[in-house]
Write a protein that binds this DNA or RNA. Structure first.
Lengths: 251, 251
DNA sequence: TCAATTTCAATCATTTTCGATCATAAACAA
DNA sequence: TTGTTTATGATCGAAAATGATTGAAATTGA
């Protein structure tokens, strides 16, 4: 049996079953274990599959990401709710800006196959967006060490070339007096610019952000519609609604 | 049996089964192994099929570029050599441009903890660059479906804001007449702009790119120093050196 | 925990495949 | 005719692929 032929069979088996044991592969190809092992090693180097003990598995692009995200991220369910609702605000043919950050990331699966154009400064969003067949543009800018978000003057400048039907932003803190704030001034300048070029703006924030303030000012509350969940206090709901439109997502 | 007749049989067999072993072909044609080998070599040169060890396979007539995954398949070691050498050209404090693409990707591990500033249009490079503590800026632009590379006018525009000590580019094809070429015009515009704003420019290309041409013109050979390996033919070395500086990396 | 089993990478001998070379025979030209 | 070109088949050493074996590492089960 030809090498290419054998490796094609391996690919086919994996497509069918997600994973396969070495023994299975030995049987269906009629080759020796050594040969199969060599094939798997080679194919893993080519990123065609992932070796696992005893066999091989189809590799999923996001294999590492969820684990990473789950660890770092708090209030996942709350953020999912926010993201789901926010995605429903987007209309066919819209051009939208998606801020970097995990809350916004969760919006992407809900955008699958919608005819929209997305601009983002979140490097980590890009593979996921492309996977979901979404036309994607990326802002320029300096890449932030931990999050890979694009920030700073350069990012803001490229944003000025666009006009958005809607902008979806994450922030670190929401307060009626301080408005929306975030720790990194380099980031705030990007968010500010997005708010300037967006027609309708939304800030997604879970309950932990409420009544907090961070170092860098972004904008006063009225600059965007605040999307949050029932988990925030009545008091906060009351206070913020005096300054801006606020949408409380019910679970 | 006539030569044409024999080769027609080979074509037919391939159409049926996608691939065929030399032994099979020897049997059905009644010719010797040597003859079949000669046929296959000849037919491969005419791009009628692809030789694989032990036989031949139908070649997929894809106009599109091979996906990133398939691309990574080939000549990894050669690319590593190129990347290693290219990295040695970078000086402390340099500002450099790193093109998207796997060959260039391999440069990154060699840049660890160097005091340099990198600008790239390769989304996939960013996490790796940050991991190695390298100051990283990203161009804007449209994200390409398969490779996540940033391309098009927007990418080129942001590049004009920078000046580089050195640019490192990948290309799909190198030819003394056609110069450097690549299948995607959206990509070529980015590479062109990089060449304009770079002080010293390098094109990294393995032997498979030599003497080939692709759809979109980037620049004539003299626009960059060609970095390649011993694997390319004497003839190509000779010819290209008439047009541009060429560095042949020894293993 | 320990022992048994499975899985693994590394190594080696064998087999297969390859390209190069040479000899032969047929086709062709002078 | 004779010499030349071309296609073919055979052979050979080198390179690559394969299969078997081994001891180490990981996993499992008691």
């Amino acid at each position: 049996m030809l090498t290419v032929e054998r490796q094609t069979k391996i690919r086919e088996m994996l497509k069918e079953k997600e994973m396969a044991t070495i023994h299975e592969l030995v049987e269906t190809t009629g080759s020796s274990e050594s040969t199969i092992r060599r094939d798997l090693t080679e194919m893993e180097e080519r990123r065609e599959l992932k070796r696992v003990r005893g066999g091989a598995a189809l590799l999923k692009r996001r294999q590492e990401e969820p684990a990473l995200i789950e660890k770092q991220v708090q209030f996942v369910e709350e953020k999912q709710q926010l993201a789901h609702y926010a995605a429903s605000l987007i209309k066919q043919q819209d051009c939208i800006f998606l801020d970097a950050g995990t809350t916004i990331l969760y919006m992407i699966p809900h955008l699958k196959d919608r005819e929209i154009t997305v601009v983002t400064n979140g490097i980590t969003h890009v593979p996921l967006l492309l996977e979901h067949s979404i036309t994607t543009y990326v802002t320029g800018g300096k890449a932030k060490e931990k999050t890979s978000a694009l920030v700073g003057h350069a990012a803001a400048e490229t944003l000025k070339n666009y006009r958005f039907d809607a902008c979806f932003l994450g922030v670190n803190a929401v307060d009626d007096e301080a408005g929306y704030t975030t720790p990194d001034p380099e980031e705030s300048v990007v968010k500010q610019t997005a708010l300037q070029v967006g027609n309708k703006n939304y800030v997604l924030a879970d309950h932990s952000k409420m009544g907090e303030t961070a170092f860098a000012h972004i904008a006063p509350l009225h600059a965007a519609t605040l999307v949050t969940t029932e988990d925030i206090s009545e008091d906060h709901q009351q206070r913020y609604s005096e300054y801006t439109e606020i949408k409380v997502v019910k679970s």
